[in-house]
Design a protein around this nucleic acid. Structure first.
Lengths: 180, 180
DNA sequence: CGGTTACACATGAACGTTCAAGTGATGCGT
DNA sequence: ACGCATCACTTGAACGTTCATGTGTAACCG
């Protein structure tokens, strides 16, 4: 990718990357593209769920009442509200989720994991976790995992601090809404 | 996400993650979701290109003749051939790419970066590289970058070695083709 | 009390991706 | 020389996501 200094002059000031930086970026980006695909494939085959569908069900399953506001759920899942709304509609049709207005404040809608959804998730979870172990956790040693965690926090904080869109409402962007 | 040992028994053997492993995974996964979105937003705003469109143009620009077989390009870009074909069709309409049969072997099609496409990429590159610097490179120190590079190589090798779909033809999967 | 404002969410159209099927070129065997 | 098999790629339909718009609820103000 055209990101390092080369012979041809460019219009803007050249904040090009060094060879080491470029190699790190390319390697990391390759991973960004391939790991989700690899995980997604196993989930589709075993449970007919996309990665984010699994994630949403899992977020709800962790809560005592297994319910959350749509806007909060969208923020937690790094998803736009419209996308989540469509997705929840599809999961409703499968009987895995349902929606109801917040009893305390009718402005809000809750997404609720059904009993069937909970059982479905419990069945899908071991395969997914096994796959995450196989492709990611067991490949790296504890120090590498800690470094990844630290790096993810630093980059995430930078994204949050960026005035341009990319944050998901944790810092200063409105909850769930992102421009495109 | 439901990936660590909890009170309720599960159907399959519990290869659940430890608390540290889960934290590392969640942090990393959060990054997997947010970094592409943040980069994509800047490219869309400045150049009306998606991340993979930029990547494809950049791959071609690095070659002396600025051309590559569609199947090879799909493999390099971690994309399915059908997706690449549609994408190249759209970029053709914008005058950034063109296609022609391989003169030596008519079974193959070459994607070729046009002069206009090259100029367009040269204009988009500084903004994109600046954004990668801002959100990723400059946030991490050289040791962290090297650790990320090593981790990406390890996980990538594991994905390649997995008999299940997720590899992209570098090891044993056919070039460009992936199941779903 | 009623009108206005702000916000959460749903919905439909447009767009990009995936899947399945079709087309064209080349190599091989008879 | 011809028929068949294989492969690369294209294409169209179906599906999921994004964008723009509309609807419903609650809070606020006069």
């Amino acid at each position: 990718m055209r990101m390092s200094a080369q012979g041809e002059p460019e219009a803007a000031e050249p904040h090009w990357l060094t060879a080491d930086q470029l190699a790190a970026w390319r390697g990391f980006m390759n991973l960004l593209q391939r790991l989700p695909t690899a995980l997604e494939w196993q989930l589709q085959r075993d449970a007919q769920l996309s990665f984010i569908e699994y994630y949403v069900l899992a977020l709800l399953s962790d809560l005592p009442e297994r319910r959350m506001r749509m806007s909060e759920l969208a923020a937690r899942a790094n998803s736009e509200l419209s996308r989540l709304s469509h997705m929840v509609g599809r999961l409703e049709k499968r009987g895995l989720l349902r929606r109801e207005p917040d009893p305390c404040d009718g402005r809000y809608t809750h997404a609720i994991l059904t009993d069937a959804g909970y059982a479905y998730l419990a069945e899908a979870a071991p395969g997914h976790v096994g796959r995450v172990r196989e492709l990611f956790i067991d490949v790296l040693d504890p120090e590498e995992l800690q470094t990844l965690r630290r790096c993810a926090e630093k980059v995430g904080a930078r994204i949050d601090g960026s005035p341009e869109k990319g944050g998901t409402g944790r810092a200063e962007n409105p909850v769930g809404q992102r421009g495109r």
